[in-house]
């Protein structure tokens, strides 16, 4: 049984889709943000791997067959941005100001906390790019001598956190305008946060797409200056 599952190219894909579907169903049933489909999906899939004895590496290798959809799917975030651009355009200065200040605060806050906790250079540069999309963050982290496993972990945890807590954080910080909500989610939690913003509101999703692009490019520009 284990050999069949380890060798199958489809077991990881089916497991992922089924685990996500279970998470989505649970969220609909409970209405709770904590029953997040990505989180529940990962926990269920992880538990299934432990039970069946399939190694995580074999699972990830199997998922590559559909993980490559990530790039074209990210490219398609231009669609919600295009649809709503005429609406969000009038607030473009406010959106850009939010992204720039958020990115600056993100880098400053991580840097300061790493200093205070004496984490050392390797971990600091691994954590600095944690609010941008994985493909970018890993390149930046590696270029400055960071550890890509740590960067990946920090980016995923950040995104899932934004995805789960996004709506609650909007209430806590009284972000009532969808454009401000999208700016916050895209700037702080990249594409996983933007996925949540798209579910909340069309304008939030569009602003989130814009924020993840601008915050990503901005971080790529500033990062070499602070780590150099």
């Amino acid at each position: 049984m284990r050999e069949i599952l380890c060798g199958s190219a489809f077991f990881p894909v089916v497991l992922t889709l089924a685990a996500y579907a279970l998470g989505a169903w649970l969220q609909r049933r409970t209405g709770s943000a904590a029953a997040n489909p990505i989180l529940v999906g990962a926990l269920v899939a992880g538990a299934a791997l432990t039970v069946t004895g399939v190694p995580v590496e074999a699972y990830q290798a199997g998922c590559e067959s559909f993980s490559w959809l990530l790039t074209p799917a990210t490219v398609c975030l231009a669609i919600p941005l295009y649809r709503q651009f005429s609406v969000i355009k009038k607030d473009i200065r406010a959106i850009l100001a939010g992204i720039v200040s958020g990115t600056a605060v993100s880098l400053g806050c991580i840097w300061a906390m790493c200093m205070v906790m004496k984490l050392g250079r390797a971990l600091t540069v691994s954590l600095l790019p944690k609010s941008i999309t994985t493909a970018m963050g890993i390149v930046l982290s590696e270029s400055a001598g960071g550890l890509d496993a740590v960067t990946t972990a920090a980016i995923i945890v950040t995104g899932v956190l934004g995805n789960i807590a996004g709506e609650r954080l909007c209430r806590i910080f009284r972000l009532t305008d969808p454009v401000a909500q999208g700016t916050a989610l895209g700037t702080s939690a990249h594409v996983i946060g933007t996925a949540r913003a798209s579910k909340m509101d069309a304008n939030a999703g569009a602003t989130g797409s814009l924020a993840l692009v601008v915050a990503g490019i901005l971080t790529a520009l500033v990062f070499p200056m602070i780590t150099g």
Binding site: G98, S101, C109, M113, L119, L127, S131, A154, L169, S188
Partner: peptide, 25 residues
């Protein structure tokens, strides 16, 4: 420390970017 940094900086970034945009709008 890493979880603390990730959680705190994400929340702070979220608050600052959202509040700045909303205030300017």
């Amino acid at each position: 420390p890493m979880l603390l940094i990730v959680v705190v900086s994400t929340v702070v970034t979220f608050a600052v970017s959202g509040r700045v945009t909303q205030a300017m709008m």
